[in-house]
């Protein structure tokens, strides 16, 4: 019961943030250079047509009315039309979101699976080779731009060694059969279709983008894990655990790691920010059919509705991920749970 209330409170805290995000997105749209009406009416339109378009778009209304209209349309899931694809922006984004989410989650998984043990080992064996390796990876990893890592990986593993598949998109359009869309996530859909060959091909194509994106998130994770573990390992309660004869593994996992998880999970918020931003770059390099690449071409084509929809979707996604982070912390830390 108590927990339920805490969860509800956390969810409520996210509401003003979402409102703020919507307002900023609206302002971004208003700040656009030039007259959107002229833009939407097309190059050959005469003043009457422009005026009609302006009226249609509600641009002749006061800003506040426009904002209300924006909200009203948002509640109907109407993000406007994309001028480059001709489809509703929401449809475009939703059909491409799974590819981005698949990539981002895979990169997160990679960063955690590598970064967490690395940071832990570095903290458990300070001054050893692992510790130094951790420090090098953390400093170097933070200095490599995602897109540069991606290109180097492609050069080495695709061009030089030839062991990576062609770095274009999620599927090999010639050889792979496109599975019927159930979830939109290719890894899942291919499995549902029982098509292991395509699954394998999709998974292989995911490897390089995943590593490129994950490396950038790995540095903060390993860094904070190391610092947090060093602190908890030298804490009084770990001393108690040893004084009570508890086994090494119990001390490390139940006492040190569990407490260290709090700062580690907190930093995931920032890591998500990195990942969502970095995914745009990685998608660009790998011609990944996600929303990042879509947004880049939308920006280039001055497809404002699409850009705005993209920014809004990413922000909402980010707020939700932060909410999940908050909830996980609430689940782990009783002190937060009882806070009023």
């Amino acid at each position: 019961m108590n927990t339920l209330i805490t969860i509800l409170r956390r969810v409520l805290v996210a509401v003003p943030t979402i409102i703020g995000v919507v307002i900023v997105t609206f302002i971004l749209q208003r700040a656009l250079p030039g007259d959107p009406a002229v833009f939407y009416a097309g190059p050959s339109a005469n003043p009457e047509v422009v005026a009609r378009v302006r009226e249609q778009l509600g641009l002749d209304q006061p800003v506040f009315m426009q904002f209300l209209d924006f909200i009203r349309r948002l509640t109907h899931g109407d993000l406007g039309l994309s001028i480059s694809s001709g489809h509703p922006v929401l449809d475009d984004l939703l059909s491409r979101a799974p590819a981005s989410i698949e990539l981002t989650l895979a990169a997160l998984l990679f960063a955690i699976v590598v970064g967490l043990p690395l940071g832990m080992l570095a903290a458990l064996k300070p001054g050893t080779l692992v510790d130094h390796a951790c420090r090098v990876i953390v400093t170097v990893g933070a200095a490599f731009p995602t897109f540069f890592v991606a290109l180097i990986l492609i050069f080495v593993f695709y061009y030089q060694l030839g062991i990576a598949p062609e770095p274009l998109g999620q599927l090999n359009e010639i050889y792979d059969t496109i599975p019927t869309t159930v979830t939109g996530f290719l890894l899942i859909d291919t499995l549902l279709a029982g098509d292991t060959a395509t699954f394998q091909s999709v998974a292989m194509k995911l490897v390089l983008p995943m590593i490129s994106l994950g490396l950038f998130a790995l540095a903060p994770i390993a860094r904070i894990t190391r610092a947090a573990m060093l602190e908890t390992l030298s804490s009084d309660y770990c001393r108690t655990a040893r004084a009570m004869g508890l086994s090494y593994s119990r001390m490390v996992f139940s006492y040190a790691l569990r407490n260290a998880m709090l700062p580690i999970i907190s930093i995931l918020g920032m890591v998500f920010s990195f990942l969502l931003g970095g995914s745009v770059l990685v998608e660009q390099v790998f011609a990944w059919p996600g929303i990042g690449a879509y947004a880049v071409s939308a920006v280039m084509a001055s497809d404002y509705a699409a850009v705005q929809g993209f920014v809004l979707l990413m922000a909402v996604l980010y707020v939700l991920l932060n909410l999940v982070v908050d909830l996980v912390i609430t689940a782990i830390d009783p002190r937060v749970r009882y806070e009023h």
Partner: peptide, 25 residues
């Protein structure tokens, strides 16, 4: 052999009991 004796045959209590206990267990 100490790990086996600690907590069973020889135990220890520390100063500052608040920090000596695991805060989230």
């Amino acid at each position: 052999k100490m790990a086996d004796l600690r907590g069973r045959e020889i135990s220890m209590v520390f100063q500052s009991p608040r920090t000596a206990l695991n805060p989230i267990r």
